[in-house]
């Protein structure tokens, strides 16, 4: 090889490394530095672990963490919905192609748009409550977005509605790549639908389900900002009832002018997602190995 051709690969990956370095590398190093500083404007003095102390001593932070954890409850529901729908689609029941187009719709619509629409539907004097009252279920006609004890659950409904579409997409992709002879053989053996689902299909899908669960955990912990922001009229709420860690970081940076605090919270969030990403890697490798 000539020296120039030995350099060629590096020339090809140089822009990639530069871009990733700028958008991921620089910020991920910098949040650690900032997290130990009292940042005013663009820099500030070292203050050791003070930022971490302040955050961990603040009830609002723990409230946010608790809300993120509460959102994890949505995941089993999402998995169940995705499984049932994707398995039915994969059986190619009559009209499955049309159904497939329809059940993917939630994933095509942007979160802010859906959040605005859902917010109107769930308004106190909105159509959902009107429907419930019409069905004489008045006790269920809650103040879905105005009450602090209900608001987070309402956001969760929206999240389940949209993120299940991702599960269906993922599971269906896996199911369609499955060897049909196995299920056909089971059918001939007279195994019922549920038995086949439980004993043959789900074990085959274990990898992709694990993958989806880990991705969803990351979503619930660190990627629900758009849902919360729009449903809560630009700040979450009422009050701090739907505050999550992402919003905590956003507020610290944007509304309280405390980049150091925002950075320290980012570091903690990054470390938690880092562990999950490691998990994700293992899960994915296992999923790929089984495919």
């Amino acid at each position: 090889m000539t020296p120039s051709s030995r350099l060629t690969p590096y020339l090809y990956v140089l822009p990639l490394v530069a871009l990733l370095g700028f958008v991921f590398g620089y910020p991920l190093l910098k949040i650690f530095e900032f997290s130990f500083k009292m940042v005013r404007g663009i820099d500030g003095p070292w203050i050791g672990f003070r930022n971490y102390q302040l955050i961990l001593g603040q009830s609002l932070f723990w409230e946010s963490v608790l809300h993120n954890l509460q959102l994890l409850l949505a995941i089993p529901v999402m998995v169940a919905i995705s499984l049932i729908v994707s398995v039915l689609l994969a059986e190619r029941v009559a009209g499955w192609k049309l159904y497939r187009i329809i059940v993917f719709v939630p994933f095509v619509l942007a979160i802010p748009i859906v959040a605005v629409v859902m917010k109107r539907m769930f308004q106190f004097s909105g159509p959902v409550n009107e429907m419930l009252r019409w069905m004489s279920l008045d006790f269920m006609a809650l103040d879905w977005i105005g009450s602090s004890s209900v608001a987070l659950w309402t956001v969760m409904i929206l999240i389940i509605w949209r993120e299940s579409a991702l599960g269906i997409i993922l599971f269906l992709a896996r199911l369609l790549s499955l060897d049909e002879s196995v299920t056909e053989a089971a059918k001939i053996d007279g195994a019922g639908w549920w038995r086949r689902l439980w004993h043959i299909i789900i074990p085959e899908m274990r990898g992709v389900i694990e993958f989806y669960v880990v991705v969803s955990v990351i979503t619930m912990l660190a990627a629900v900002f758009s849902y919360i922001y729009i449903m809560g009229g630009g700040r979450g709420g009422p009050g701090t009832s739907t505050e999550v860690v992402e919003l905590y970081i956003f507020n610290a940076l944007i509304r309280s002018s405390l980049p150091g605090i925002a950075a320290a919270a980012s570091v903690m969030l990054f470390l938690v997602t880092g562990i999950l990403i490691f998990l994700l890697f293992n899960v994915r490798q296992r999923a790929e190995a089984t495919q």
């Binding site: 009450s147 700040r235 709420g237 009422p238 509304r255």
Partner: peptide, 22 residues
Amino acid sequence: VPGQFYERAAIPTGQQIVAGSM
């Protein structure tokens, strides 16, 4: 009002009282 007080107290207090949760 400092920004932090605005977000953490000035806004949520009224909202929670009106919602009957404070």
